[in-house]
Write a protein that binds this DNA or RNA. Structure first.
Lengths: 222, 222
DNA sequence: AAAACTCTGTAACACTGTTACACCCCGATG
DNA sequence: CATCGGGGTGTAACAGTGTTACAGAGTTTT
């Protein structure tokens, strides 16, 4: 804890003559690279130290501990995400566009989900879209508690969908129980339905249909 | 691997005279207890062995390895969940009731989420509601690809919501970034909105509103 | 009696996060 | 100039994790 404060304060002597062999930034950079290359579980303090050609204790001196390190990585990724702008003419369209953009932003940073999940920072996933959602729902005529409920509903749908989607891709078909049930449905007289349930092939369409349905319901009752 | 086959095949000599000191069932029982008491991370092979008064290798002989053990625990919990029955008169009401019941069932088994998450079995979380959803959407007049999309949308919303809700409870307020933004909203002229965004106090209402909105959108277009 | 099988124990390997402690170097102070 | 203090690093260890090679006891089968 105090170590972090100290190292944070010394951003000037980083290039001083009595140069430290690694910087806090260098640690964070290679940590980020390790996560990009092999996920959250590919990031170990020893690996990180070895990668920097340094003993483990140096890492601890610079970042405190692993949790603080991951927190900082989350912060970094979130910082470079920028803000979300709504597009479209109708209020519903604009809100849906915010949801779509939010999903894109998060999916473009695959390591982010693993990081927030490990540290229980799931709330931060919703942060980028919040501002835009509040604004657009207000523009759609929703205020007060009603608006709060609407914003939260959309946020939960977006973030929940994304986390689930990432957890499911690749794994779904493998489940024996799932497969068994699918063939059962196919024999039940609606093969097209079974096919549609099998593919997690088009998450894009699924996401848009779900979000649009929810949003239109929320803005209609004004 | 073969060990599992062997032990699974020997359900008869479990009570034979040359009695083993632990049974596969006993291992699973205490494993389940450990998870209930201290979560997934409270379940270690050594702790489990110690709890049973046995060496670690016995555990491995009976269940194979940790992953297989957790898989079996998931199976067990899922098996005792039973089936979901729809209630209500209108199609939308019936579908919403399935979603509510599904959430209740899962939340009543808090350890389940940790287990499926650790093993990437998230798809199994949706399984109990699938049958009922397909039936009710068919009764609402949806068939084929349209019905598949609707079922998937509801499933994703339910499962995503639950996972997020469990991850957020308790943690949300702690985030500094979240807090900062909330006070900003409050000063923006809509304190009631800020209040509604702050509480994760009423997830029940939030869930019902979100699901009902989505479902009504899905069944309306028939 | 011998061989095969079931089940358990000892001890180790390779990892993980974390820390107590000694040390080096360099700049500031007495 | 000498001394002190602190930034930064290294060695080595502690405690814990999943996993396994191997030996052995006890029972059943051949």
């Amino acid at each position: 804890m105090e170590a972090m404060e100290q190292s944070r304060a010394t951003s000037k002597p980083a290039a001083a003559p009595g140069a430290p062999r690694v910087t806090r930034d260098a640690v964070l950079d290679t940590a980020m690279r390790l996560v990009r290359e092999s996920g959250t579980e590919g990031l170990s303090m020893r690996k990180l130290a070895a990668e920097l050609g340094v003993a483990v204790t140096s890492i601890y001196w610079h970042v405190g501990n692993r949790d603080a390190l991951v927190d900082e990585l989350v912060d970094r990724v979130l910082r470079d995400m920028g803000t979300i702008r709504a597009a479209g003419s109708t209020p519903a369209d604009r809100i849906v566009s915010v949801a779509l953009a939010s999903r894109r932003m998060i999916l473009d940073r695959p390591h982010l989900i693993g990081l927030v999940r490990e540290r229980g920072l799931d709330a931060l996933l919703m942060l980028p879209a919040r501002r835009a959602l509040v604004r657009e729902f207000a523009a759609a005529g929703l205020h007060g508690a009603r608006a709060a409920l609407a914003v939260q509903a959309v946020q939960f749908q977006v973030a929940g969908f994304i986390m689930l989607e990432r957890a499911l891709t690749g794994h779904e078909q493998e489940q024996a129980a799932v497969q068994a049930w699918l063939s059962e449905v196919a024999e039940g007289g609606d093969p097209e339905l079974a096919a549609g349930l099998n593919v997690n092939a088009d998450p894009d369409e699924l996401f848009e249909v779900a979000v649009r349905g929810l949003v239109e319901s929320l803005v209609r009752e004004v």
